[in-house]
Deep mutational scan, measured.
Amino acid sequence: QIFVKTLTGKTITLEVEPSDTIENVKAKIQDKEGIPPDQQRLIFAGKQLEDGRTLSDYNIQKESTLHLVL
């Protein structure tokens, strides 16, 4: 699982696999929060994550925290 922290300070927990794409993660966030993926920007280690890449591409491991910017 990974954590996604929103600007409001809320933390969302997501069940993911390293092979999941960023697009996939955004879809999971939409399921939980109702935020359309095209409004979501995910930041990890100061980098904006691209939809077509996977979590493992960015070396995002379990218990990692991503930041969600709208």
Rank of each mutant, 00 (worst) to 15 (best):
P37R: 13
T65G: 03
G52E: 10
D38I: 11
T13P: 06
I43M: 13
K10G: 08
N59K: 09
A45P: 02
D51T: 06
I35D: 02
I22K: 00
L70G: 08
L49Q: 00
G52T: 10
S19V: 06
Q1W: 14
F44C: 05
E23S: 14
S56Q: 15
D20Y: 07
T54I: 07
L49R: 00
E33V: 14
D51F: 04
E63R: 06
V4K: 00
I12F: 11
K32Q: 11
Y58R: 01
T21Q: 04
K62M: 15
T65N: 04
E33H: 09
L68M: 08
Q1E: 10
K47M: 15
G52S: 13
V69S: 09
T6G: 07
V69Y: 14
L42P: 01
Y58T: 02
E33N: 07
Q48M: 13
L55S: 01
A45R: 11
E17M: 10
L70A: 10
I60A: 02
H67T: 14
L55D: 00
L55W: 03
S64D: 13
E17V: 12
T13M: 11
A27G: 09
T11E: 06
L55C: 05
I29C: 02
D31Y: 10
Y58S: 03
I22Q: 02
N59M: 07
E63G: 13
T6E: 04
A45L: 13
V25S: 00
K5Y: 06
I12T: 03
K62T: 15
F44T: 02
I60M: 04
P36L: 07
E17I: 10
K5V: 15
T65R: 05
R53T: 06
I60V: 09
T8M: 11
E17K: 08
E33R: 05
D57S: 12
Q39G: 06
D31M: 12
L42S: 00
G34N: 08
T21P: 05
K5Q: 11
E23P: 03
K32V: 13
L66P: 02
D57V: 03
P36E: 07
T65D: 04
Q30H: 14
K62D: 15
I35H: 10
E23H: 11
T21D: 03
L7Y: 15
V16I: 10
L66A: 02
D20S: 07
H67S: 09
S56H: 11
E63F: 12
D51L: 06
Q61Y: 09
K28L: 10
A27M: 15
N24H: 10
F3G: 03
L66T: 02
L55I: 09
I60H: 01
V16H: 05
T6R: 06
F3R: 07
Q39P: 02
E23W: 15
P37E: 07
I35S: 04
K26N: 01
L49W: 01
I22N: 01
S56V: 08
E23T: 09
L49F: 02
L49C: 05
N59I: 04
L7C: 15
R41F: 12
L42V: 03
T8K: 10
S56L: 11
H67Y: 13
T11R: 08
Q39S: 10
E50H: 09
Q1T: 14
F3H: 11
K28N: 03
K10A: 09
D38W: 13
L55K: 00
E23C: 14
G52Y: 10
I29L: 07
E33A: 10
S19N: 13
K26E: 01
G9V: 02
E33P: 01
S19A: 08
V4G: 01
G9I: 02
L55G: 01
Q61V: 13
T6C: 13
T6N: 06
E17L: 11
R53Q: 09
I12R: 02
L55P: 01
G9D: 05
Q48H: 13
I29A: 01
F3V: 06
Y58K: 01
N24L: 13
I29Q: 00
R41C: 15
L55H: 00
L55F: 03
K32M: 11
G9K: 04
K47I: 15
V69N: 06
V4W: 01
P18V: 11
K26A: 02
F44D: 02
E63C: 14
R41I: 15
G52M: 09
N24Q: 13
L68V: 05
I2A: 02
I22G: 02
G52C: 12
E17R: 05
K5C: 14
I60Q: 01
A27F: 12
A27V: 11
I2L: 08
I60E: 01
F44Y: 15
V4M: 02
D57W: 09
I43E: 10
D38T: 10
E33W: 13
L42A: 00
Q1M: 13
V16E: 00
I29V: 06
I29T: 01
S56T: 09
F44G: 03
K26R: 05
V69M: 13
T6I: 13
L7R: 09
G46H: 06
K47N: 12
I2Q: 01
D51I: 06
I43L: 13
K10L: 11
T11C: 15
D20Q: 05
T21V: 05
Q1F: 15
S64E: 08
G46S: 05
L66M: 05
I35E: 02
Q39F: 09
A45Q: 15
E63K: 07
F3P: 01
K26Y: 03
T13N: 06
Q48G: 07
K32C: 11
V25I: 15
T21H: 04
E23M: 14
E50K: 07
L7A: 14
Q1D: 05
L68F: 03
Q39A: 08
G34K: 06
I2C: 02
I35Y: 13
G46Q: 05
P18D: 10
I12G: 00
D51N: 11
D38Q: 12
R41W: 08
I43Y: 15
K28E: 03
E63S: 10
E50V: 08
K62A: 15
D31Q: 13
F44S: 04
Q39N: 11
L7W: 15
T21R: 07
I43T: 09
Q30Y: 15
S56K: 11
V16P: 01
E15W: 12
N24F: 14
K10I: 10
P18G: 10
P18E: 09
Q48I: 14
L70K: 07
S19R: 07
E23I: 14
I29H: 00
R53G: 06
D20H: 06
F44K: 03
Q48P: 10
I2N: 01
S64K: 04
V69E: 12
I29K: 00
V69R: 08
I60Y: 02
R41M: 12
I43N: 06
Y58I: 03
A45D: 14
T54W: 04
Q1I: 15
P18H: 07
S56R: 10
I43S: 09
K47C: 13
P37M: 15
I2P: 00
F3M: 06
G9C: 08
N59E: 08
I29R: 00
L7H: 15
R53W: 11
A45C: 15
I2F: 04
I22W: 02
D20T: 09
T13F: 08
K62W: 14
G34I: 02
G46L: 03
K5R: 13
I29E: 00
K32I: 13
Q30K: 12
E15K: 07
K62G: 15
V69I: 12
L42Q: 00
L7K: 09
T6Y: 12
S19I: 07
D57G: 04
H67Q: 11
I35G: 02
K10V: 10
L66R: 01
R41T: 14
K47H: 13
